[in-house]
Amino acid sequence: MLSLTRGSVMYRQFRRIARVPAAGLGGVLVAGFLMVGLLAPWVVPLDPFVQDLSTALHPPSPSHWFGTDELGRDLLSRVILAARVDLTVVALGIGSAILLATPLGLIAGYFRGLADRLVTAASDLMLTFPSLVLAIVLVSLLGSGISSVVIAVALTTAPPLYRLIRSLVLQIASLDYVEAARALGATHFRIITRHIFPNLLGRTVVYTTLLGSHAILSVTALGFLGLGVQPPTPEWGNMLVSARTYLGTAPWLTVFPGLMIILFILGLNLFGDALRDLLDPKLLWRP
């Protein structure tokens, strides 16, 4: 499907995108965070849970690059492990949302009818809740913890994703080549999986990176409010709670977890913009 041989259209597209510094930076940031998240247990310099009160609140130094927190734990190690925690929560939440929204969107958009109206009404209803309010309500009922946060991310991400997929299916299903496939006697299943699904993939992937940056905002906000991932498990948001107590004395407690959140969101946003340009057929033939 995507041929990357030299001289192909896609290859030239990648070259064109790679020349834009912002897009390259976005890709590098996202890939970097994924690597750190995946390899966290092997790349942490020190045990992120070991407390040593004799070295509490030490500023950044050669032995602790990011300094230490109020319990003497190595901040760099905690920030790295937090990357793994945050990325896992976001990936699981968005993954579940994709598993929920894709089949529903395909079926509702393709077959329309009563099922479409019911599912769309349910998704519209969920969209009337500000996402953080819905997340807080869910967490207050399910109890705080990783699984509740994953559920909250999944349930706040699925409705907008469903709406996008459904509207793309509505557009694509009315195109001539779908009509042609139908005339050739293709089954509904074949039309949906072979003719519609591949063509909505690009836009959906772009939108998912955007939802990813929303999700990381919700996860860290919940953590910061004390309703998300619970300490001692490090998470960028919950690390900032203790940072507030030591604002004037230990700014590194705010700066490093904060910088991670900013860089991750920045990376996702830049990467998403680049992907959108890459997958936009209208931009394909521009020099």
């Binding site: 940056s213 860290t220 906000a221 507030r244 920045l266």
Partner: peptide, 23 residues
């Protein structure tokens, strides 16, 4: 604006508090 879109509100709040209130 690109930077503003990447900074979570609570982090900006913390930084403001550090600068304008504490320091």
């Amino acid at each position: 604006t690109v930077l503003f879109l990447s900074v979570p509100n609570f982090l900006l709040g913390l930084l403001l508090m550090d600068l304008l209130a504490v320091r």
